[in-house]
């Protein structure tokens, strides 16, 4: 069922999209498109957990995939959620026999014309960040080596997403450090400079800085920077 002739192209294109100008939404959109294309699934959807651990819809290969993902989120039920919770794949689940497992989701998916469903965890070590859902409209079954391939696709995507997150956290941390460290040091320097200029103590200089920030409705660090200008 997996179109192995497309595999190389899929992995090469995904790798290419990691090299520069990485855009998460665009990347996930391609991922779902490729997963659908290569597996023959009629719809593919993807959920990712936000930093509170709440799953959010991220991408789908088409509208019915999106609808089914959102339905799972609304009813807190379905293969994607099971897969995210357990970290284990859900493979070859036949919807007609799944009414007791997913009383809301199964009838809805059948109504939408699907017959089988698969979900693959997006996981690195002990951390599961989301799940990739494949919906089939025929009685499609994956063989063991085929599920490994889809899982590999999910794994590559997971690494890409985590790396992108780390980098954006690194950028945030850098900004935070610059804000916290530079502005504090600047403020201390300004206290000393103003104290000398006005012949007062640093405590008095600090109140002067605060007073001026209040009366001109500016941030303390801006007033401090002004004191240091020209030094």
């Amino acid at each position: 069922m997996i179109a192995t002739d497309k595999l190389a192209d899929v992995f090469v294109e995904l790798a290419d999209s990691l090299v520069d100008d990485f855009d998460l939404v665009d990347f996930l959109q391609r991922l779902t498109d490729h997963a659908a294309d290569m597996s023959g699934a009629s719809s593919v959807g993807l959920l990712l957990a936000d930093h509170h651990g709440q799953l959010q819809f991220m991408a789908a290969s088409n509208q019915s995939g999106k609808a089914l993902e959102l339905f799972q989120l609304q009813h807190s039920e379905g293969p994607c959620l099971d897969c995210y919770t357990t970290g284990e794949p859900v493979v070859n689940a036949e919807l007609e026999q799944a009414a007791s497992r997913w009383p809301h989701f199964a009838p809805r998916a059948i109504e939408a014309g699907f017959r089988s469903v698969h979900a693959f965890p997006m996981r690195l070590r002990d951390q599961t960040i989301g799940a990739l859902n494949l919906f089939g409209d025929s009685q499609t079954r994956f063989a063991a080596d085929e599920t490994r391939l889809v899982q590999a696709l999910a794994d590559v995507a997971t690494i890409a997403i985590l790396q992108e997150r780390s980098i954006s956290h690194a950028e945030v941390l850098t900004q935070q450090l610059q804000g916290a460290l530079n502005s504090r040091i600047l403020l201390e320097q300004a206290k000393g400079a103003l104290a000398q200029r006005e012949g007062v103590s640093t405590e008095v200089a600090f109140s002067m800085l605060r007073k001026q920030a209040r009366s001109t409705q500016r941030r303390l660090v801006e007033v401090a920077a002004e004191v240091l200008e020209g030094l």
């Binding site: 460290l181 530079n182 502005s183 040091i185 320097q189 920077a225 200008e229």
Partner: peptide, 21 residues
Amino acid sequence: LMTPTAPSPGAAVAPAPPAYS
């Protein structure tokens, strides 16, 4: 923790060297 002394937001000048805070 260290950070290069890029001007902090709103600040016209960066703290003086070392080149990092």
